[in-house]
Amino acid sequence: MISVRRDICAYCGCCISVCPEGALELIDAYLDVDANTCITCGICVRACPLGALEVKK
């Protein structure tokens, strides 16, 4: 599962389009992770310009 550091995230949406599963969505000003769809591949973590995403085992 991916966890979002809300104190860091600037809700830019950069992570969303690289997600192969479509598990992320930017809803107004917060990032939503769909736990049922996320495969914890970590691609979004690498795309984040600020370091707001973490893989939580």
Partner: peptide, 13 residues
């Protein structure tokens, strides 16, 4: 399918 390959996503600040 709108997925962007990671290497083709320019990440910016």
């Amino acid at each position: 399918n709108t997925t962007v390959p990671l290497r083709e996503m320019e990440t910016c600040a």
